[in-house]
Design a protein around this nucleic acid. Sequence first.
DNA 1: GTGAAAGCGCTAACAG
DNA 2: CTGTTAGCGCTTTCAC
Lengths: 340, 340
Amino acid sequence: MKKRTSIYDIAQRLGVSVSSVSRALSDHPSISAALKERIREVAAELHYTPNSVAVNLKTGRRNTIGVVVPGINRSFFSSAIEGIEDKAYKQGYDVLIYQSKDSAEREERIVHSLAGKVDGVIASVAADTTDHSYYNHLSASGVPVVLFDRTAPGVDAGTVIVDDYQGAAMAVKHLLRQGLTRICHCAGPQHVNVWSNRLKGYLDTMQEAGISIPENYIFEGANTTEEEGRRFARTVLAEGSLPEAVFFAGDFAALGAMLEFRKAGVRIPEDIAIVGFANEPFCQLLPTPLSSVDQFSYKMGYMAGKMMFDRLRGEPQVGIVIAPELIIRKSSLKTIHNHV
Amino acid sequence: MKKRTSIYDIAQRLGVSVSSVSRALSDHPSISAALKERIREVAAELHYTPNSVAVNLKTGRRNTIGVVVPGINRSFFSSAIEGIEDKAYKQGYDVLIYQSKDSAEREERIVHSLAGKVDGVIASVAADTTDHSYYNHLSASGVPVVLFDRTAPGVDAGTVIVDDYQGAAMAVKHLLRQGLTRICHCAGPQHVNVWSNRLKGYLDTMQEAGISIPENYIFEGANTTEEEGRRFARTVLAEGSLPEAVFFAGDFAALGAMLEFRKAGVRIPEDIAIVGFANEPFCQLLPTPLSSVDQFSYKMGYMAGKMMFDRLRGEPQVGIVIAPELIIRKSSLKTIHNHV
DNA sequence: GTGAAAGCGCTAACAG
DNA sequence: CTGTTAGCGCTTTCAC
């Protein structure tokens, strides 16, 4: 573990000042081509790499943006992160990734620790709380925040979301168009924007169609995980009478339900049509491919990154809303010829 | 964007010295309980958070480890990262994640930029090159390197791998045990350890069973992507005579091939049995669930993290080999009753 | 137990 | 064009 070479080493070697070295290495205009050349040679020879920590301390910029998501093992988040990274690297920024695992406690700790080490934070909030005000510590101390997908009311931040209301409406209309009317909705925790908007989209669309929804047709909280989807299916099966269709606020719950239905001999879509939300890659791989609402995760990430750099530059964008797209597959095609 | 509060602010406020503040905040023994208390109060009041960049510069430690993987959108890597993170956070370290996208050029740039900002690097190397010597710049300058899964010869690093040879042997034996002998292998680029070991495991096991392998039964390079798997299937279909089984060095290629075979009306496992490698989550979701060799990705990540901290502590572990497990599903069960 | 002061490696005035 | 110097915010001797 030998000591790293600093600009002092190379300055000494050439008998010049450190400022010349600094200038040569950062392409400053006021330095002779000859000196610059000599310095660069020695720098290369000595395998010099700048100590970015020192640079950061000096300049005040960290050249790093922090990303906080529930977990990276969901394709939605991992590809959003790809979008963020692509944008960030293009700007010469690093990306620090953190997983809240949907725990507000963890998230708060993360956000706190982030304060001193990033220029900005892009996040999709943890679902297990209603109060994400700790994010305001960041914006209050000059660290811009951009929330994507799962936003939080009362947080001073730019937002990039998909039009969840519209997405839900598309899904429900697609079902209605096939003459289905007994349509259930498996909703997520209502304090999070994405899930409350999907519920609203469902409700309004049903109402516009003049269809009244039975009390027990809306299941709350049965959205985020495969296990919750399974539980939902079991409940419905126990009740005896199946709805004609169910619109899930998330693909994983839809998946769980499908597996459970299949186990019980219920046919999809013949006995029950299903639509999910997120368009995770597995949707098209299932025995009965799952219809779902695509959220353009990569694009969301990329836009969030873009908004971040706008804010960093002092041009605060307010909010971006991306149009979703309904991907129709077999799981929701009760009448096979009735495409869309 | 008000200025962040520093230890100077709080020192001034109390009329004490910055060293006292520093001591109070870092629980240094030589400071009176009373002063410590007062300082901490003011610190809390002013929402003080230490500027970690300054700390890093001063102490020389970055408290960050860098992770370089081909991409985070593969479940294998994202869960390995979870393992790394869990270990790192426990030690109070941050994790900086980079994606090489299997490009050596990108990887080299990343590795270079990492030099000054992390204490250690955990990586799974890019597949498109044979020369990963740039990792040696790191170890040469005192930054320990741990390679997991995809390692590279000639790189000074600790390694955490799964016993690929053994995994391949298990897969092939499972097929042999069902009386199958015409077994193909879809191998990956042979300059990468994981794929050459899988090929070796396949070859040796076949030989031990006294089965000679036709020239055209080994396909190289058809491993990493779904598209390559599709291409393989098309080639085989064009040739006319199908093998009885094929062992893929990766799940994604297996997936592509299965989809293509299905399209052509070839039944799995009746017409052709298939085994993959990695046990990606989608394996069990497919219409015909895919048998695969599990690599315990989370554990690999966790172990890699552990090895990293051992090295950082100056206790260099050499190499860890994890035992793989064959998960048998329908895709490889030609004789339904022949459960291993 | 407390304070003064010297840097960590670099950048950016300010001089010349 | 080049060099001198003052910090960025913090930790850590070294004095008192």
